[in-house]
């Protein structure tokens, strides 16, 4: 029971991280290989604030998100104007920089040994509610003018500019939202495991998330979520050794790229609105109105 509950919680936290990546990669077509570093910032900052200053959990989380977004702005500012390859390369460098910074500042972060003693605040319920709220935000975002402009930018930057879309600004918006969501997932993670160390936030984590988004279907939020569930929970339940899990992932994804390039779900979205009408429940929707 303990095991299952922890698998579910980790999967939910992954879903939140992946929603950040979905907005950035799935909708806007940008790849951040330093996305996990923002998770690290969320985790370390909120953890350190609570442990070192005794600040209340929620306040620490909010401050951590704000700091992540500010750092995201500094990283994004020179890069969003340039061709999309730059954001992957720059965030990759950023990720390495953050990892080395975390390793070096032993007095604050515990260095390579990790940062421990974080109180356990994240419960299965909190993770579940957070994931649902994030899903709702993301599905509204997708159908908003912002989401449309993101897809337009992904599809054709030149045409997007010709339609009066300020592409640097849209890219920055998408990037900062994704940073905020991912750093929040970091805070949840830290307060669940009560211990974090720099090694888990490397570029491969970011790559894994991008793969999950892609695996489910680039444009589809439903697909991204299912992709995350399949690729997080399945290997966990099957108790694959970590290294084999990676190989299993990669082969699966290479097969998909070669034989079903639109991903598992393509552009399909779960018609939640219709399902709710079908059941005619008075309760509010659970998954947002995925169009």
């Amino acid at each position: 029971m303990e095991f299952i509950s922890s698998v579910i919680t980790f999967t939910l936290i992954s879903i939140i991280s992946v929603i950040g990546v979905y907005i950035l990669t799935g909708l806007t077509g940008m790849f951040s290989l330093g996305q996990a570093s923002f998770m690290a910032i969320g985790a370390y900052v909120s953890g350190a604030l609570v442990v070192k200053t005794g600040m209340p959990f929620w306040m620490a989380v909010i401050i951590a998100i704000i700091i992540s977004v500010m750092i995201g702005f500094i990283v994004g500012f020179p890069t969003v104007r340039l061709r999309r390859d730059y954001i992957s390369l720059v965030t990759l460098g950023f990720g390495e920089a953050i990892t080395s910074l975390l390793n070096q500042t032993q007095s604050i972060t515990g260095g390579a040994l990790g940062f421990s003693g974080i109180p356990k605040r994240t419960t299965l319920l909190l993770a579940l509610i957070s994931a649902i709220v994030c899903i709702i935000f993301a599905s509204y975002f997708k159908t908003s003018k912002y989401g449309r402009q993101c897809i337009a930018v992904k599809s054709d930057e030149l045409a997007a500019k010709a339609m009066g879309i300020n592409i640097s600004r849209i890219k920055m918006t998408a990037f900062l939202i994704s940073v905020a969501v991912t750093s929040y997932s970091g805070a949840l993670y830290a307060f669940y495991t009560t211990y974090v160390d720099p090694s888990i936030f490397g570029w491969k984590k970011s790559a894994e998330w991008a793969i999950m988004v892609f695996f489910g279907g680039v444009n589809s939020l439903t697909g991204s979520i299912f992709g995350t569930v399949i690729l997080t929970a399945l290997p966990e339940v099957l108790r694959f050794a970590a290294a084999y899990r990676v190989v299993f992932y990669s082969i699966l994804v290479l097969l998909i790229i070669n034989f079903k390039p639109s991903g598992l779900f393509g552009e399909y979205e779960l018609p939640v609105g219709k399902i709710i009408k079908l059941f005619k429940g008075g309760r509010k929707e659970e998954k947002g109105n995925a169009a």
Partner: peptide, 13 residues
């Protein structure tokens, strides 16, 4: 991009 990071992950795995 996805293909290349996947290939990289595969090599490293």
């Amino acid at each position: 991009f996805v293909s290349s990071i996947t290939l990289g992950t595969l090599f490293e795995g």
